[in-house]
């Protein structure tokens, strides 16, 4: 297991005291901060290779491609995404992802990063569901993943802080909590079966504990490069993977069911800094 002091101390010192915003902090510094704070770092430190590789995360190439796409005039309306409001005002990306899902009055819905991005690509740029730009949801070569990875990278080091002011934000979070404990499927699984204790493992994989915000902050830090997939993956994709193991049927990307789960899981990491983009096994 890695010692808690692997990463440069001076950098770690520089970020102390920045509870809600850490502009310029690198994902490896944020992870180091989580590891140092954790009394049970088994999940956070389980892959020394990934910790070592984090500064050279292949996801940075995807971030770069995403930034280009974001600023490029595209779609039938030939405009960029720079006027898209991710919750903190048009064009404001810093700390926007760590405050999602949230309620958007223009759409009348609680949206996660994925669905908000799609909303802007439709309303601002004029894309439709049939366009490849929106249709292809997964893989580092998809527009959606390039854009999400770029947008989320602007929230590294920011504390998860999904708003709970609108009644729908609360309703979705609370329903997501019920879903987290709702047992179903061939194996009777709920999410809690695998994610409610520290340092539990499925085979060799150490599982993050939803009750430990330090674990959980990294756990929900998506997009992340999945080394075993050789692709950047989204929160929506992680939901899908766990539901697959649970023997549940397919969940629809951007459905309220998926957003309710993501609302609950983001709330569970409240106050801890996001590692974006992350690198996972």
């Amino acid at each position: 297991m890695l010692k808690k002091s692997v990463l440069a101390l001076p950098i770690a010192l520089a970020v102390i005291g920045m509870a809600y915003a850490a502009p310029g902090q690198k994902p490896e510094e944020t992870l180091d901060e989580l590891i140092k704070k954790s009394p049970n770092p088994g999940y956070l430190t389980q892959s020394p290779q990934n910790i070592m590789m984090l500064p050279d995360n292949p996801a940075w190439d995807v971030v770069e491609a995403g930034e280009k796409l974001f600023k490029e005039a595209r779609g039938p309306k030939n405009v960029s995404l720079e006027k898209c409001d991710f919750g903190k005002g048009p064009g404001v990306l810093a700390g926007a992802h760590t405050e999602l899902p949230r309620y958007f009055a223009d759409a009348g819905k609680v949206m996660d990063l994925d669905s908000r991005l799609v909303y802007c690509m439709k309303t601002l740029q004029g894309f439709t569901n049939d366009d490849a730009a929106i249709k292809q949801k997964h893989g580092s070569d998809s527009d959606i993943m390039k854009l999400q990875t770029y947008i989320a990278s602007k929230s590294n080091g920011y504390a998860w802080n999904p708003p709970m002011n609108h009644p729908l934000e609360k309703a979705m979070r609370d329903a997501g909590e019920v879903m987290f404990y709702r047992r179903a499927g061939t194996m009777d699984f709920n999410c809690a079966a695998c994610h409610s204790q520290s340092e539990k493992r499925i085979r060799a994989s150490v599982l993050p504990n939803v009750y430990d915000p330090l674990d959980w902050s990294k756990a929900i830090s998506w997009p992340a490069q999945r080394t075993s997939h050789d692709h950047v993956r989204s929160s929506q994709h992680r939901v899908l993977e766990c539901l697959w193991q649970m023997r549940y049927p397919n969940i629809k990307n951007g459905s309220d069911a998926s957003i309710a789960l993501i609302s609950f899981w983001t709330d569970a990491a409240r106050g801890q800094p996001a590692v974006l983009p992350d690198l996972k096994r």
Partner: peptide
């Protein structure tokens, strides 16, 4: 709401 989202809202296939 959870029951609705799982079984009635067209969220799952």
């Amino acid at each position: 709401l959870a029951e609705y989202l799982v079984l009635e809202s067209d969220g799952f296939d």
